[in-house]
Design a protein around this nucleic acid. Structure first.
Lengths: 213, 213, 213, 213
DNA sequence: AATGAATGAGCCTTCATTCAT
DNA sequence: TATGAATGAAGGCTCATTCAT
């Protein structure tokens, strides 16, 4: 919600801020560094094995600074997840053709996801696996998995509407099924050292057959 | 101070206990109680939010007793997972017809899994989600997810062999995809309060279409 | 005080007891086994790293049996120390000539101690080092070191009386000095792998020169 | 909530503290307090009866602070031992005449050790007795006893070289013997309430006679 | 805005001892 | 006499978070 352009704003740091009327005027470099560091460590070690202090050290700032930018560790993780989601969204949007056959649509989608995975290794996995585990207490504001499932559900609805997919499915259920299939096949495939093209090919055929009219 | 009451026989184990309903240290009772308590708490709270002490208290035994039966918390969790796996296996084996159409085969499978899920609510989820997270160190002797994926792969291979499924898939990849689809659709369906029959129906159709020759 | 002939009574177990009017009548085999086991473990691991359970298991009896023979761990250790003291006494008494030159007297003494050390490796060290450490609370009934120091003091007094040693020393102080010299030189010599004859020779010359009239 | 009072300068460090006598977290103060507290408790209670928490409380800091300065309890004890060694070294170096007779040399040495013992009662004993007992595992980087024995060995070698001591001894063995004699006579003498001059006098005569050419 | 020393609740685990059998 | 399951106080240590500077 308030993460706009922080992640990649390594250019024009001060000028950009000068525009902002609520003159913070200070470079929020530390936030960017913390985000990067948090991502690195959450991916490498997982949520529970990563301490705020570790993140701060990795970011090269004092540990107190962490709490200037995040109310607590949980929020930092959630921000990481949110970033991942936003980024993946961009990837997918940028790489998906407007219209085409179901098969090539699905392949584009899978390839976009894989492109993201390859340029941000481990990120999706970390974001998805740990979330179930960051303690429940606070409301998790619709978990990532559910949201991605919803995205797939939306995708299904649209394509059914356009006649490219079989009718009769409950899009939510099938959306979640697709998400699960993609996630599990991918992460295990990665673990087992399978080639991307093989996984994408199998998965695409699997999904296309399941979904085509 | 010594041997107040008579009754030193080794037979009549339960009658003796009935007389003295509270306590009476009996041998392998505590393990069973601990197992039950562990399952309950791992399911309700997850791995990290469950302390060995909690399990012991829930089981009604001292917390030293926990370490009489498990070398550490991790082992206790692994035992819980193993139990779940074994139990689900029984469920599935008992409820799966020897031969029949792909559709009814898959429906049987899904129904068996659902039967298990309904009589052991939350167990599969707890076993699957937390395991990725209990930290490595010791080799996890092939994680549960992978193993269940392999089971599905095996299922695919067999059915392809018997001509009930389409050729050309890499069974490992597709096995994992099926596992993911089933798991994700089920657990989200459960979360969303969807009816079992609806989920099973959608999932079965989805899988059958993806897999049939 | 009540350890009389237990340690080595491996012969005539039952007959010997039959004499005892307070008819225990049971073979106290387990006590002997526990003593042996305790010695082994105290020597190998030290006081703090040895649990009563370990001793019991090593002895091949149940852990409860331990508390049939010793009120607590501390008492068991003290008994071990006492045994060592008694045994060393025998060794020394058996191997010390009635009268002779100071030099050969001291050599006999040292050789007796070394004989004991060699046939009971580590025992003296364990008995001496750990005692300062078994917790103070209860009165340690004159620590071993002090008592052995007193033995040496006695030895000095006797020899001074017979004109074989220099007058003018405070026998207590010198007794402790001798004890310390012998103990430290021996245990470090053993650690460093020095030959017995070299240590005995150096030590004997050192002590003789310090003590001769 | 932020910056109530003025005074953000970085000078005037101590005056500021004088105003607020209690607390005021200052940097390397806690280490000094912990060191002092550790020494006190290790001396009074020994290694095993002293918990890190006790040391922290004695130092007036939270027990987390303990682990800011020492990786674990063992390291804290080792640091205590090292301090003792360093301090005693200074004492001895400051109080030992460059050259003189063997007798006055040894007396100086003993007196230096006694001076130290009197101004730091119990420290040498605690450092020496407990060290054998803190369990191995990590290499104790030559135990204190051995090192002090080596120092004495060195002392012997030097004096033999300068003709002040008898030839023919193995300096290592005799070094350890001297260490043992001094340690044992001193600590027992202290326990028995003997006067320093008596112990020093007896010990000095004993050693001089043993060592003089 | 930034720092990092300080904190203490809380975690996992051990072990001397008891006691019903 | 012997057993060993059971106990819970206690121990060492971690880590998310605060706050004086």
């Amino acid at each position: 919600m308030e993460k706009t352009a922080a992640m990649s704003s390594r250019d024009a740091v001060k000028p950009a801020k000068a525009d902002n009327p609520r003159a913070t005027r200070r470079k929020p470099e530390s936030l960017a560094k913390l985000r990067l560091a948090a991502r690195k460590l959450f991916v490498e070690r997982g949520y529970h094995a990563t301490r705020p202090q570790d993140i701060a050290r990795e970011a090269g700032v004092g540990h107190g600074t962490f709490y200037l930018h995040f109310p607590d560790k949980r929020a930092c993780f959630l921000a990481f997840v949110e970033d991942a989601r936003t980024e993946l969204d961009s990837y997918v949007r940028e790489r998906t053709p407007a219209t085409s056959s179901l098969r090539s649509l699905i392949e584009s989608l899978l390839n976009a996801i894989y492109d993201y995975s390859e340029s941000h290794p481990g990120v999706l996995n970390a974001a998805m696996t740990d979330e179930a585990v960051i303690d429940a207490e606070g409301d998790p504001s619709t978990p990532l998995l559910q949201r991605w499932g919803n995205d797939w559900a939306e995708f299904v609805r649209e394509n059914v509407g356009e006649g490219r997919m079989a009718k009769g499915y409950n899009s939510h259920i099938v959306g979640q099924a697709i998400l699960g299939a993609v996630h599990q096949a991918s992460s295990e495939g990665w673990r087992a050292g399978r080639s991307r093209s093989e996984v994408v090919d199998n998965l695409a055929r699997f999904l296309v057959r399941a979904l085509e009219p």
